[in-house]
Every structure is written in C-alpha cells, then in structure tokens.
Computed example of a mutant assay.
Amino acid sequence: MAVLATALSASSSPGPAPDRAHEHILKVTGGSLSEDALKALAAGMDPAARALAARHDPAAEPQEWGRVEGWPNYDVSVRPDLGIGALDGDRARQINALIPIAAGELKPARPFVFQGSAAERKKALRCLTQAVYYESALESDKGQAAVAQVVLNRVRDPNFPASVCGVVFQGAERTTGCQFSFTCDGAMAGGVVPWAWDRAKVVAERALAGQVVAEVGTATHYHADYVLPWWSPTVRKVGQIGTHIFYRWAGSPGEPAAFVQRYAGREPFIDEARFARPRLPDAENTVVLASEDGHGRVAAVLGGRRKPTADDIARINEKLRRFEAETPSPAAAPEAAGGEPASPAA
C-alpha cells in the first residue's frame, strides 16, 4: 500500500487527479495484483520515491530475493553477501517460496538422445543413475527426471564438460568445486538400496532415450528448498518439483539456441573408490555468477545439501519406510564400477 500511495503522489510524470486514481491503477495493472502488475505500477516512479516507499512499508521483508542490480557483471573473485546470515531450513523455505518464478523464462529443452557405443552408454548410464539416486532418491519420478535433465542440459552447454560422467563428477578431484555434492561428501561410501537404485536407473535410461521434463526446460542449476544459496539471484528461477528448485542462465545463455555443445562420444574414467572418500567441499567459495552477454560464467555447486539434524533423519527414515512398504525390493543389486554387485545400505 505504501508503494501504491507513493506511486500516485511521487511519480516522475504528472499523476492522475485524486478522484481518477483508481482508473489509473486499473489501466496500468489491468486489474491484477500480481508481482508483475506491481512492478508495472512502480516503473513510472522515481528511484528515490521507490526507496522511500520501501522504507516506510510497515510489512516490509528484507529483499532477499530477485536479481540484484549489477550482479550480471559482478566481480567473480568476490562472493556476494545477501546480508541475511545463517538460515534454518524452515526460514529458507519461506524465503524461497517468496521468490517468484521468472515470467517467460521457462524455455523448452530439446530431447537428449545418447549417441555413442554400447560401452560408453553403460558408463554414462551409471553416472547419470548415480546423480539421480544420490541427489533425489526419494523424489517423485518427475522430480528424479528433472535432476537427470539438468545433467543432460549441462552436457550440451558449452560451459560444462561434453560427457555425462564429466558433468556429474566435474570438480570432484578438488576439495572446493564438486558440482554434485555426493561426489565429494562421502555419500558413495555407504552402498545403495537396490530397489531405489533400480528406480533411479529407469529414470536415467529414459532421459538418455530422449525424455524431456517440460517443467524445468533448459535449467542448468537447482538446489534444495531448505537452503538459500548466495548464487540464486544470479540465475532465473523457472520452477520447483518436490524439494528441488530449478534455475536457468539469465539472458541468451539460457535460451535453447545456446545449447550447442556436441557430445564428446566417450566418457572419462571415474575412480569411484577415490570419490567415495569424504573431502569436505567448500561450496561457499565456489562462484556461479553469469553475465548477460555469456562471458565470465562459472558453474555452481549443485545439490545444496546440509548436515541433517536428528529431526531430519527421523523424517527421512519415515519416508524411506513408506517407500519400502510400497515398493518390493528387487533380488538383484546394481553393478559397481568393477562389475561386482554393490552392498545395500543399512
């Protein structure tokens, strides 16, 4: 209400007569009270008037969302500070829910159909299955498919490796740069639950055969809704499936036409024994700023996981119990990298 009142009294252009104010608002907003309508109404205000309105807004929340002015060309050697300090999961969820989905930013992704030998496909399938399993084992089928699509979108993005395993394990050889946190936090050391692995494998197979999740389009980033990464204002929010919020690059780098990288045709060797050892990634120092012209972009750490609390563990175990009650456990365990079946997790 403060913004609306100030818009009418302090507009940079002559305002309407007081008795015609409602007509002016109706004309500008089209009768809508949406975020876009409010932005349209405030667009004619002087910047100082907008700042004054925000200062006197009795219900104002800290502006912890949206794209920060100047960030498209921010100094990538400096990690920006949103000024909100540490957040618990509930507060992060509240803020993430307030961040609007960017209008018009969801663009369709082309199907990814794997082109390579049977041996390379087997490697790619294992890496993609690992990403789906460790990042979204208890998500819905669509939620798992969305994670797989982010991986394959990155394979076609010139800013990332041109292979599936290369994308999944990018940065895993360092202690500060794992793109997917499971590749350096020790998650792979505990084995897998066979039925959940097989479910993730089916999702990965479909993704490699060209399945597309329209709800995430060209997304190349995501994080869990119980964290608020400092890099999220630098990219465009396109949707949420389950606990994961998905983003695409801002501007032309996030358009379908930008995904022109050709698959390398071969997959790198992955030393799973090495990457199963925890190496404590420092996600806070990994830069993910994107420029509008496509230059100087650096990738983000994905996953956005944090150390679980006792309550988190109890909720996860209860959800796992319900999954297992509904899903019969297959007799066969998945093959490990060396061809031996992996031990199921307790």
Rank of each mutant, 00 (worst) to 15 (best):
L8R: 04
S9C: 07
S13G: 09
S13N: 05
G15I: 07
A17I: 01
A21D: 02
E23Y: 09
V28F: 04
T29Q: 11
L33S: 13
L38C: 09
L38D: 09
K39P: 00
G44Q: 01
M45W: 10
P47F: 01
A49C: 11
D57R: 11
P58A: 02
P62E: 01
R67M: 11
E69M: 12
Y74F: 08
V78Q: 11
R79Q: 15
G85D: 14
A86V: 10
G89R: 09
R91C: 07
I99Q: 15
K107H: 15
P108V: 11
G116Q: 06
R126A: 08
C127V: 02
Q130E: 15
A131L: 06
V132P: 12
Y133M: 11
Y133I: 11
Y134A: 14
E139K: 03
S140M: 00
S140T: 14
A146H: 01
Q149F: 01
Q149G: 01
V150K: 05
N153A: 09
P158E: 06
F160M: 06
S163E: 02
V167N: 04
V168F: 10
V168Q: 00
R174G: 13
G186C: 03
K201V: 00
V203Q: 12
G210Y: 01
V216S: 10
G217F: 00
H221Q: 15
D225F: 02
D225I: 06
W230V: 14
W231S: 12
V235N: 13
G242F: 04
G251P: 09
V260C: 02
E267C: 01
E272N: 10
F275L: 15
P278V: 07
D282F: 06
G296N: 09
V298Q: 14
G303C: 03
R306W: 04
D312A: 12
A314F: 07
I316Y: 15
F323E: 13
S329P: 12
A331C: 03
A332H: 08
A333T: 05
G339P: 05
P341M: 08
P344G: 09
